[in-house]
Computed example of a mutant assay.
Amino acid sequence: MTLSPPWRKALLTLHVVTAVGWLGVDAVLLTLGVAGARGADPDLVYPMLALVGQSVFVPLSVLAWLVGFASALLTPWGLLRHRWVLVKLGITTVMLGAVLFALLPNLRAAELGAATPPDARQGLLAAPIVSTTLLVVATALSTYKPWGRIRRHRPRPA
């Protein structure tokens, strides 16, 4: 099933907006994490990081993944037609899992401000570095579309 061109363009627009939003909020989290690591007031930086992360980053990550998955299913690119689509889906799925299961507990710990544990602080700095890198890789995959189509084995005529 594929969408008509106007719906496909609307879905593509939503996909780009959510992905760019994810990258933008990632930059905000990275900026706050660096500020915390460089000695900014932890009672200001970490609760702010927790607020932005929990109220914007986590929901936007889920939305971006859902829209990307819908785009793969409902557009001519298809979910199982091109290797780059599968790799990109794999990257974003791993990132979403990391957001939900690794970053979210650190965001909750960041609500403590100066009492945020050191390992949570390190995780709050490392997560946006990794996430930003992976989002840039996913963007490159969308731009260059490497590796071609996935070949399906079809029985040869007798």
Rank of each mutant, 00 (worst) to 15 (best):
R8K: 15
A140C: 05
T132N: 06
W84V: 14
P155A: 10
M1S: 14
A37C: 04
V94K: 02
S55M: 07
L66C: 08
T143S: 01
L66N: 00
V17Y: 07
R149G: 12
A138I: 14
R38V: 02
K88D: 05
S71C: 07
V52P: 06
T2N: 09
L107K: 01
G97V: 09
L60T: 07
V67H: 00
P128F: 07
W22S: 03
L14P: 10
K88Y: 05
V20A: 15
G21H: 05
T31R: 13
L79H: 01
A72K: 01
R152W: 05
G39C: 15
G33H: 02
F57P: 10
N106Q: 00
D26W: 04
K145F: 10
D119R: 11
L29Y: 06
L79T: 06
V67C: 01
L135A: 12
L23E: 01
T75S: 15
V136M: 00
L23A: 14
P118Y: 05
N106L: 00
V130E: 05
L3E: 14
W22D: 01
K88V: 06
T2Y: 03
T93P: 10
G97T: 08
A98M: 12
G78T: 05
D43E: 09
T2L: 03
R83L: 12
L86I: 00
V16G: 01
N106S: 06
G97M: 05
Y46N: 07
A127P: 04
V20K: 03
W147M: 12
L79E: 00
L74F: 15
A50V: 15
T139S: 06
I91P: 13
P146E: 03
L141R: 06
W84N: 13
L86V: 03
W7R: 09
L74R: 14
L141F: 08
L11C: 07
Y144H: 08
L30N: 05
P76D: 12
A35T: 04
A70N: 12
A50T: 11
A138D: 10
M1T: 11
A64E: 12
P59D: 11
L103A: 03
L104H: 08
R81L: 04
L44M: 11
M95T: 11
V58A: 12
T75G: 12
G97N: 04
T116M: 14
L44W: 14
A138H: 13
L73T: 03
L32M: 12
A126T: 01
T18Q: 10
